[in-house]
């Protein structure tokens, strides 16, 4: 293979890798969100369906362990927090990855992509001109 096609191949590989990277991050967010939703369902169920005194069966891997309710709740809540943080991190990373991919493919950078969002109060003030 001559030098040119070598270079093209290398370039294409890099782009593919970057794209794959983006897709992986996206899938990761989906997985984390589905876990978060399952946790949320569990918390709701704990709140409404089971009396406080009772112990609940918690599934760890392929084993069920009886646990006190308050302890379980605490555990899941901690897990939720962790998940929330993780999703945020992945999203932040995803932005950088998409930027990199765009740059590699020679696409123009998305407009206003790196802006910080306005706070809700500020948005409310501008609402009437934004929603036309």
């Amino acid at each position: 293979m001559d030098a040119v096609s070598q270079r093209v191949l290398q370039y294409l590989t890099e782009v593919e890798e970057a794209a794959e990277d983006v897709l992986t991050s996206k899938q990761q967010i989906v997985d984390l969100d589905s876990k978060r939703n399952r946790n949320r369902e569990a918390l709701n169920a704990l709140k409404t369906e089971i009396p406080d005194s009772e112990k609940v069966k918690v599934c760890f891997g392929n084993m069920f362990i009886k646990f006190p309710k308050s302890k379980t709740k605490e555990m899941i809540e901690k897990d939720q927090e962790q998940l929330e943080k993780e999703i945020n991190d992945v999203r932040k990373g995803l932005k950088a990855k998409v930027n990199r991919l765009n740059e590699m493919q020679g696409n123009p950078e998305l407009r206003g992509y790196n802006l910080c969002p306005l706070s809700t109060d500020e948005l409310k003030a501008l609402n009437s001109i934004l929603k036309i």
Partner: peptide, 14 residues
């Protein structure tokens, strides 16, 4: 598609 809880970003020019 994708996750249920999404983050939506809209860029406005005023």
């Amino acid at each position: 598609e994708g996750e249920l809880q999404k983050r939506k970003e809209v860029v406005h020019t005023v």
